[in-house]
């Protein structure tokens, strides 16, 4: 329910701006003229750019069978078109069904920071495990850690008392 007002407001605002824009355009001839000129200018730019691109030789990239061949030499568009015609002719001559590629399941990548942490953790864990290997030591360590834990809890309560 809360979502509706926000979306409605946004939509109405956009609609209002659209309506206002139309009215301004109707009412103001000078604006329209300027806009038309600006539009013409904007249109000419890309067209001119495209013409330049079409006219000048540029890098040719061929993608075939999953491989990419990049011809670093400048290649005129006429040659590119010719190559495409040749490829089309070859395709017509010998149409072969494309080989079915089994999709390799891509492993789920892990965030870099966690990767580093887990790598460090393994180092520490192995150290810890080594300590715990012998049974008698394990019991002793457990007792020691219990003592530490108890004392820590006591100290903790003392701290909280002081805090109060």
């Amino acid at each position: 329910m809360a979502a509706m007002p926000t979306d409605s407001i946004t939509r109405r605002f956009a609609v209002a701006c659209g309506v206002l824009s139309q009215h301004v355009r109707n009412g103001g001839a000078p604006f329209l003229t300027k806009h038309a000129q600006a539009g013409a200018g904007a249109g000419a730019g890309p067209a001119a750019a495209q013409e330049m691109i079409a006219g000048s030789p540029q890098q040719l990239t061929i993608l075939y069978g999953g491989r990419v061949v990049v011809l670093l030499d400048a290649c005129p568009p006429e040659k590119a078109a010719e190559l495409i015609r040749l490829a089309a002719a070859a395709a017509q001559q010998g149409p072969q069904p494309p080989p079915e590629q089994a999709l390799v399941d891509m492993p789920i990548a892990r965030k870099a920071s966690l990767r580093r942490f887990l790598a460090k953790r393994k180092d520490r864990s192995s150290f810890y495990e080594d300590d715990e290997t012998p049974e008698p030591k394990k019991g002793k360590m457990a007792a020691a850690s219990e003592e530490h834990s108890s004392s820590w809890l006591a100290l903790g309560s003392l701290c909280s008392m002081h805090g109060r």
Binding site: F13, A14, C17, S21, V24, F31, H35
Partner: peptide, 10 residues
């Protein structure tokens, strides 16, 4: 909304 407003007029 800013984008919509900026399209109203020059």
């Amino acid at each position: 909304d800013r984008e919509a407003a900026s399209l109203v007029c020059h």
